[in-house]
Design a protein around this nucleic acid. Structure first.
Lengths: 268, 268
DNA sequence: CGCCTCCTTGACTTTCATCAACGACTGTGG
DNA sequence: CCACAGTCGTTGATGAAAGTCAAGGAGGCG
């Protein structure tokens, strides 16, 4: 970006921090920030507000009123927006353990559509209840904030590639993102996972046509980087090459986008 | 997206809501959610942690450790990420009154770079302090959540257009987003505003080359839709046409992305 | 005045979308 | 068990949209 003073510039934040208050990042964690604890913490609310859904069902429509947070218990949800001309962009996927707040700035109107890509179940927690729960449990609040941060980083990472990356990079990145999020089975470092989406939908996720997604994946296949079978059962043969194409370092990416107990330093 | 049952499908959420708890969206607002109150609420913290910066200064670097939230007091900040090959994507701009949390999922590593585009000032509030403040004031928490939601909707709206929109749409949308965010002076419904960025940077914001941004804006100019002068002093002559190109309804867009006292229904 | 950054325009190239056709597979109903 | 329709993935041909390269012009600033 703007150049000319990168050398002389210091991280502005460092000098600002008043060490008495900051406490740096000492590792004295009070309670671990582990999203896996969410289901236990939400147990009673989940019991009360649980609802099953079927694949292809829309749970929320862009523009509708919406009074609840969704906690995904099981299944894949797609969050998407559409253009007047019919174009669709999937903003994000919500996987089990994720929270979805569809509302926009007014707090009641959904700013995107939430569609089920598989059968599954959610707990639809009313905003009022949710706000109360967050306020009553600092630990819950910390967990949720952790998920928020991870989601933000994930979307930013994708926006970078949709905005500035070529088709290969977009596809490679998307595969790695899935890979990390679903914690793919690593068989001798060759991730192996299934994603319940079509190439068309993958295209809607990364801003490509289905045809171009197909071509790109085939090329990666021919180059021995990935293997596909049976409707998006992916096997990453060459994780290094795929990461290189995606412009990603596997560990850095995990650190940035994976909400996980082993991946959080807290200041609390 | 997937079709075939849109007609029969109901908004899943409605039946789930237990009305006793939901309370719908009754307009009995306890305290208005007004971001303009933030400076007052943060007064003492701002006083303690305020720091000035100059244009082109980087406040945070992607990958660095980072222990503070930034509250923007004055000036424009750009949040961007870069690719190994040098490509840059501006994820968002932070304007006065906005909050910036640069950290990724691990809570301490910045997932993006924060650069000043103008002179200005921030308050860099240490995470610990920030968390405590949020927990102690439900009202502050609600305000911050309001800002979060607006930011999310704003980024989703942009992602939709970067992913699926042509150059004209991306440019038109970006202009409208600026227009709304800076609350442009409306002279007989012709917004008039200055954005402190070059065409190159506008391109980095919406995934276009500077050359193409230029061409696109010139075309809009020739068509009598906008007027440009003096390095990005923009005058929107035909707001309707610009909105149509952007695929946006002015009021809906405001409702979705503008954090504002007049634009929030609360459940509290 | 000269330098520098930014905008502007033209010429050319590359990438990707679109259109179209076909094969593989799935489930369905006869 | 076999047509069948439907969806999805695959491939080729073609065209449009946007990137790149290059050169010039306008304004700001020392």
């Amino acid at each position: 970006m703007k150049t000319g003073n990168d050398d002389q510039a210091e991280n502005l934040l460092k000098p600002i921090q008043h060490d008495t208050d900051v406490g740096k990042h000492h590792s004295a964690v009070v309670r671990p920030i582990d999203p896996a604890q969410l289901p236990r913490m939400l147990q009673s609310a989940i019991g009360k507000y649980k609802a099953r859904f079927e694949a292809e069902r829309n749970l929320v429509w862009e523009g509708d009123e919406c009074g609840s947070i969704l906690y995904v218990i099981e299944g894949w949800l797609a969050l998407y927006k559409s253009l007047p001309d019919g174009g669709v962009q999937i903003i994000d996927f919500a996987l089990p353990g994720d929270l979805v707040d569809p509302s926009g700035a007014d707090g009641v109107t959904a700013s995107l559509t939430v569609q089920a890509f598989t059968d599954g179940a959610v707990a639809a927690l009313p905003y009022r209840l949710w706000e109360r729960m967050l306020h009553e449990s600092r630990h819950l609040y910390a967990l949720v904030h952790h998920l928020d941060t991870a989601r933000g980083a994930r979307r930013a990472e994708r926006m970078l590639r949709v905005g500035k990356g070529a088709a290969e990079m977009r596809v490679a990145y998307a595969l790695l993102e899935f890979c990390i999020r679903i914690d793919a089975i690593m068989d001798e470092n060759t991730p192996n996972f299934h994603i319940p989406i079509t190439q068309q939908q993958l295209g809607d996720f990364i801003g490509l046509s289905s045809v171009h997604v197909c071509r790109t994946m085939r090329r990666m296949n021919r180059n021995g980087i990935i293997e596909m079978s049976d409707h998006m059962l992916i096997r990453v043969l060459d994780l290094k090459a795929l990461s290189a194409i995606a412009g990603v370092d596997w560990h850095e990416l995990k650190r940035d986008i994976l909400p996980d107990a082993s991946n959080h330093s807290t200041f609390a």
